[in-house]
Amino acid sequence: MSYATLALSLVFVLIPILLSKTLKLGLEKDTIIATIRSIVQLLIVGMILKFVFTSKSFIFIVLMLLLMISAATQNARKKGKAIKGMTWKLVVTFVAVEVLTQSILIGFHIIRPTAQYIIPISGMVVGNSMVLAILFLNRFTAEVEARQDETELILSLGGTPKQAIQASLISSIKASTIPTIESQKTIGLVQLPGMMSGQIIAGADPVQAVQFQLLILFLLLTTAVVTSIMIGFLSYPALFNKRMQMMKQKEI
């Protein structure tokens, strides 16, 4: 695709801006900012990737992964700011998920250990992990508040913090992972996944594209479940003190 063709695609940005202006939706400013950011960010990423791919240095791959994990942590920690030590809990989770998935992929020779494979797949893994962490933290915060009486009841009967919070934890893990599982049930029927569509448009064999897409889907399933469980089990102890008392929001 040439830059001239790409420029023409801005028509798809003009349509929502015009509609927003006509209907007074007030979305023009955000749409323009989002467009400029996506152009700048993706062009920079494209240039960095080109450099990393040609350099073939492992250090640059690690630096890219660190950058992804830092950005994901920065984004997700806002949702869990009420929980003490959320930043390192997110970092540990993202690193664990990344190490687990790449170990399986490279260990079983499913992908080649090159930047062309590791970086895009890591982007999908860390990105998905970040979304799952945000979904989990949103739900968990609401569950803890809604089930406060039940939590206190279990503590008052001699239960441990883990027993007291279990219902909230299980419910939040389920709620955050269900969208990933549900979307897999209808995949191919309702929508064709972006990565697969991209490969087909670029001229790849559709069956090959499907095989690779399936690999990614299964990978994201593991990512989703492991992320929610890890964040959950790392987070809940921060809600209690040493005397097994529920801490108030401002004390957490």
Partner: peptide
């Protein structure tokens, strides 16, 4: 606070 919280709560029911 010298009791295990679980032990105390089983002995002092509410």
């Amino acid at each position: 606070d010298t009791y295990e919280p679980t032990e105390l709560r089983r002995n002092v029911g509410i």
